[in-house]
């Protein structure tokens, strides 16, 4: 349990006292909506991750078909230059705060297509990446791990503090 939180016995039941940031982050990490964005064979494994075995639905993660409702972009597969421009556009359309997972060797560095003329050598050449998941393709377990690291990252955010600290919001 996070030491920032404490349970207090109130008159009508238990009261949880926490930091505002913790509450916001906890909400956020419990409903990561990711942009459905499969580009190649990794996309199949991404679908498996949403399937009943790995089931990232249990983290409250559901695929969205529009960037405007997405918090997380999972770039799953080989990114061509032609698609890279679109990926940038989609990323720009996502509302802040937004996160990016680069899934698989191809998205991370071009993978086995690195010497191809048409393949972008890594999605980090166009958008900032938070988590790299290695593999070709990464197993659903690996992607789930990456997902949990994104959650860790979300829990470390301090948006309320940055917005003027507790004094103003209290």
């Amino acid at each position: 349990m996070n030491t920032d939180n404490s349970l207090i016995a109130g008159d009508e039941g238990m009261v949880l006292v926490s930091k505002l940031d913790n509450l916001i982050n906890w909400n956020r990490k419990s409903s990561i909506w990711y942009l459905l964005f499969g580009l190649a064979c990794c996309g199949i494994e991404l679908m498996q991750t949403g399937g009943p075995r790995a089931d990232i639905d249990r983290f409250g993660a559901v695929p969205r078909a529009t960037p405007r409702q997405a918090d997380l972009m999972i770039v799953a597969g080989t990114l061509t230059y032609k698609m890279a421009l679109r990926a940038k556009l989609l990323y720009d359309q996502m509302p802040d705060p937004k996160y990016v997972i680069s899934m698989g060797a191809c998205a991370t560095c071009g993978g086995l297509f690195q010497l191809a003329y048409s393949v972008c050598k890594g999605v980090d050449k166009i958008i900032p990446v938070d988590i790299y998941v290695p593999g070709c393709p990464p197993r659903p377990e690996a992607l789930t791990e990456g997902f949990m690291r994104i959650q860790d990252k979300m829990m470390r955010e301090r948006w309320a503090q940055k917005l003027g600290g507790g004094a103003r919001l209290a």
Binding site: A84, Q114, Y117, S118, K121, K125, I126
Partner: peptide
């Protein structure tokens, strides 16, 4: 035209570098 044998890759495509 990339399948020509003497095709040389550009340094970048729209500012995206082509090497890593």
């Amino acid at each position: 035209h990339p399948l020509r044998k003497d095709y040389a890759e550009q340094e970048d495509y729209r500012g995206i570098g082509t090497t890593r």
